[in-house]
Design a protein around this nucleic acid. Structure first.
Length: 704
RNA sequence: GCGCUCUUAGCUCAGUUGGUUAGAGCGUCCGCCUCACACGCGGAAGGUCGCAAGUUCGAAUCUUGCAGAGCGCACCA
């Protein structure tokens, strides 16, 4: 028996050594796997290269590694492609916080300088992140790793944009966007958070009408009064009729507009509109060719149209405006029980100001339709399947997607402008500067999801790469359920649009990792668990088991330190099981004929093997893990090893030989079945087995 | 407002297509340093499976209603 079994199992002394061996063996790369198995591919959701991994990363790495190791042992050419995400806006926000601490600001920096600084920061973070992925045992093929700002990635993403422009799927439009006045950029709908808020709802006298609003500060430019064409209360008013009304800063000429967008049931059924700062108002203005005027500037302050209120922030101006209207006798009443939804920046919680801005948009309707049809044909399945419904809903209601961001950290949009201010603007889409004078490059960058949406294509080398023909479409996309809108639909869309094939056939969605009491981890609550601390303390194998057992797809997981500790105990149990087996089997020939009882025990584990195999194939990973755990401890250790003691102490030589043979068989079986879940300790024990069917357990044959 | 998910032992959760005395981990209590393991072993307590009705020979599991929790979506000013 190897001496190491005399001491308790020490994960910290084992894991990095084992990982280094695996990595050196080259077996993470399917090109080096023997046999002619079919390809099996998972694209790793590239972690952001801007900080430490969190528990969610640990979970997805564990789940994906389980699938990959399982398939690799089954003889597939298992490929798991790692990556690193520059994470555009997210990283820029992280870096801006760093700048703030240093008393600097990106707005006073040269964009090139800023870009270079963030680049250096990201490369440093990337190395750190990759090391942490290794610590979690990920058997991914590092030789194929991609970074979202690699030159070939940038090139492909820009080419896609060009193609979409030619195909009429990308357009430049002046439309309402979500504007964050802190970060000075537009955001997509998925980058905003809706919060319910209680705000006073004011009713004002507007000429002969009564209008309601929560935002009096936008009302300076309101010279259109809109009502439903079928509203009997206002049937005497004609569309286009003009009237003079007394308003905030004196009399203005108002025009009556009839539009079906008005809800007759809401308020008084009459509203004034602010097209520059509201999507719905903007649409109305477009339908009737109305003026669209900016009231609030890009920093959230009132423009000169507000006269005496010019330069004030909204929060400051609002009560003063109400006060003024009240003093003029125009305030009718205030409803203090009005709740409504406001949008906030998902990073800084700043109130989103809808602004009208020239931006690049992706026309979603035709693309969403393609994705929907693909799902209808059963080409993409969801685990758990209720997410298909959510996916459908999003697809059926997809709004055009704003893909331009006013930040430097990202892939540049390959567009050039000429005569921008003159009103005769010319635009050329090109990755190279166009010939002639006066062309200005677009300073905007792509929304990260525009590039990461193409990730499965890019990492397999679309359109001509060798891997593309072998490994695309990939097999499983495993990611968090919060990405069901952000990422999954975009990957499906780009896959179908560019390659005519959905990028994966199964989407496995895991839930959030919460704290021990099911509460969301957050820095402010101080309940954030750093997975790397847990691996240091209890071992990666223990953490992996804790993340997996009892964790059904799609639902959130409560992670307690006690749970991790429990599986550390299990690792130690395995260690001691092995010691017992090794101590008692030196007499074994390893091929003795099994007694009837022992043959039954072998049959029992064969049935279990089949069970576990099906569980993993059907994504019941939580159940497979629990079954092998239960078998190892409460069958093998508690019963089989216990009843082996008298056999080994006895004089029946056939029984002793049979039992020794059986124990080695069963231990090998346990190591194999458990390896995807607890790769390190199983490999370490396997290395001490008297007979092995492969150099590494990682590539040993999955039992069937 | 629309939608999704959840409600099972003190805590955190399983229970795969409805089928014998409802399970696990942790925790609690009692007894054990028994020559693999005290990171352990043996034993015990602990559940009207949110509530109500229905379908069925049979329901934690299916249907409906109600209550509670969580989450997502939404351009009613």
């Amino acid at each position: 028996m190897p001496d190491k079994f005399l001491k308790p199992y020490d994960p910290s002394a084992t894991e990095s050594r084992i990982y280094a061996k695996w990595e050196k063996s080259g077996l993470f790369n399917p090109d080096n796997l023997t046999g002619d198995g079919k390809p099996y591919t998972i694209v790793m959701p590239p972690p952001n290269a801007n900080g430490d991994l969190h528990a969610g990363h640990a979970l997805f790495i564990t789940l994906e590694d389980i699938l990959i190791r399982f398939k690799r042992m089954q003889g597939y050419k298992a490929l798991w492609i790692p990556g690193a995400d520059h994470a555009g806006f997210e990283t820029q926000v992280v870096y801006e916080k760093k700048l703030e601490k240093e008393g600097r600001s990106r707005f006073s920096m040269d964009p090139k300088q800023l870009y270079n600084e963030i680049f250096a920061f990201t490369l440093e973070s990337k190395k750190h992140m990759e090391q942490q992925v290794r610590e979690l045992g990920a058997s991914c093929d590092w030789s194929r790793e991609k970074f979202t700002l690699d030159p070939d990635v940038v090139k492909e993403v820009q080419k896609t944009f060009e193609k979409m422009f030619i195909d009429g799927l990308v357009y430049r439009g002046k439309r309402t966007v979500n504007w964050c006045s802190k970060h000075q950029t537009s955001l997509s709908d998925v980058e905003t958070e809706n919060t319910e808020e209680k705000s006073p709802f004011y009713y004002f006298k507007y000429g002969p009408f009564e209008i309601g609003t929560v935002r009096p500060e936008t009302k300076f430019g309101d010279k259109y009064v809109v009502m439903h064409p079928d509203d009997p209360r206002y049937k005497d008013w004609e569309h286009g009729q003009r009237l003079e009304v007394e308003w905030i800063n004196g009399p203005i000429m108002a025009t009556v507009i009839k539009d079906i967008a008005v809800d007759m049931e809401f308020g008084t059924g009459v509203m004034t509109i602010t097209p520059w700062h509201s999507q719905i108002d903007f649409e109305i203005a477009k339908r009737h060719g109305l003026d669209v005027e900016q009231i609030i500037d890009w920093h959230g302050k009132l423009l000169p149209i507000a006269e005496e209120f010019t330069g004030m922030k909204i929060a400051e101006a609002r009560p003063k405006i109400v006060e003024k209207l009240a003093s003029k006798g125009l305030l009718i009443k205030t409803d203090d029980n009005y709740t409504h939804i406001t949008k906030r920046c998902y990073k800084c919680n700043t109130m989103i100001e809808p602004q009208t801005k020239e931006q690049w948009f992706v026309k979603m309707a035709p693309l969403a339709k393609m994705a929907l049809e693909s799902v209808n044909r059963g080409e993409v399945k969801f685990v758990p399947d209720n997410y298909e419904k959510i996916f459908r809903y999003w697809m059926e209601n997809a709004l055009d997607w704003n893909i331009s961001r006013q930040i430097v950290w990202g892939i540049p949009i390959p567009a050039w402008f000429k005569n921008r201010e003159s009103g005769n603007e010319e635009i050329i889409i090109s990755r190279e500067k166009p010939d002639g004078e006066g062309w200005d490059a677009d300073t905007d960058t792509f929304d990260t999801w525009f590039s990461s949406g193409q990730w499965p294509l890019i990492v397999t080398g679309f359109p001509n790469g060798k891997d593309y023909t072998t490994y695309y479409p990939t097999d499983v996309m495993e990611t968090g359920h919060d990405l069901i809108f952000k990422w999954i639909p975009r990957m499906v869309i780009f896959g179908l649009y560019l390659a005519k094939k959905a990028p994966f056939h199964t989407v496995y969605l895991h839930g959030l990792v919460n704290d021990a009491h099911g509460k969301k981890m957050s820095k402010s609550k101080g309940n954030v668990v750093n997975p790397l601390n847990l691996t240091d303390k209890y071992g990666t194998d223990a953490l992996r088991m804790a993340l997996v057992v009892g964790n059904t797809p799609g639902t959130d997981l409560s992670l307690s330190e006690d749970k991790v500790k429990g599986y550390k105990h299990f690792a130690n149990k395995l260690w001691n099981i092995s010691r017992f087996v090794f101590e008692n089997t030196n007499l074994a020939q390893n091929n003795a004929e099994l007694t009837q009882k022992d043959a039954e025990l072998l049959a029992q584990v064969n049935a279990l093997t089949k069970d576990i195999t099906i569980d993993i194939e059907e994504f019941r990973i939580y159940m497979a893990a629990e079954k092998i755990y239960h078998y190892s401890w409460h069958e093998f250790a508690d019963k089989i090893l216990e009843e082996s003691k008298p056999i080994f102490a006895g004089t029946d030589e056939d029984a002793r030989q049979s039992r020794a043979t059986l124990l080695l068989l069963l231990l090998t079986r346990i190591l194999k079945l458990l390896h995807p879940f607890m790769p390190f300790i199983t490999e370490e024990i396997y290395q001490s087995m008297p007979t092995k069917d492969a150099e590494y357990l990682m590539v040993a044959k999955w039992p069937s």
